[in-house]
Deep mutational scan, measured.
Amino acid sequence: QTVVIGDTTYHLNNPEAAQQIAKELAKKYGLKVVISGNTIKLK
């Protein structure tokens, strides 16, 4: 699972954790979560 935040890319072996982290950050910073395949992007 790949999480992309701005110009930073994180690789996590746990998809659920990756999605949870993405949701928390999106909520905290008012970002939009875009999931395509096994890549999660925060914009």
Rank of each mutant, 00 (worst) to 15 (best):
A17D: 11
K27E: 12
K28A: 04
T39R: 05
H11T: 07
K43R: 10
V3E: 01
G30D: 03
G37A: 03
N38M: 06
G6R: 04
P15H: 08
G30A: 04
I35S: 03
N14W: 12
V34N: 02
Q20V: 07
G6V: 05
P15D: 06
P15V: 11
V4S: 07
I35E: 03
L25P: 00
K23Y: 14
G30W: 05
G6Y: 10
V4A: 04
T2A: 07
A17R: 10
I40W: 01
Q20R: 14
A22W: 07
T2P: 02
K27T: 07
K43I: 15
T8E: 08
E16I: 10
G37M: 05
A22D: 00
K41F: 15
T9C: 15
S36Y: 08
Q20E: 08
V34Q: 08
N38E: 04
Y29A: 06
N13D: 14
K28Q: 04
L31I: 10
Q20S: 08
K28E: 04
N38R: 04
T8N: 09
Y29T: 06
Q19A: 10
G6T: 02
V33N: 00
A26F: 10
N38L: 06
K23C: 13
G6L: 06
G30E: 03
L42V: 09
A22S: 02
D7P: 06
N13T: 10
K41E: 12
Q1K: 10
L25I: 06
I21N: 00
V3Q: 01
N13H: 09
T2D: 08
A26P: 00
K27H: 07
A26V: 03
T8R: 14
E16D: 08
Q20P: 00
L12K: 03
K41I: 15
D7F: 14
N13K: 10
T8A: 08
V34P: 00
E16S: 06
N38A: 08
N38Q: 06
G6M: 07
Q20D: 06
G37I: 06
V3S: 01
P15W: 15
I21W: 15
A26Y: 09
T2Y: 13
I5W: 11
P15S: 11
E16H: 08
A18D: 01
G30Y: 04
T8C: 15
K23L: 12
I21S: 01
G6E: 03
I21C: 15
L42P: 00
E16K: 10
I40R: 00
E24V: 13
V3W: 05
S36L: 10
V34A: 03
L42R: 01
L12V: 12
K41L: 14
K41H: 14
A26I: 05
V4N: 04
V34K: 02
K43M: 15
V34Y: 08
K23R: 11
G37R: 02
G6I: 11
K27I: 09
S36H: 08
A26S: 06
L12I: 13
I35T: 04
K27P: 05
L31T: 04
T39P: 00
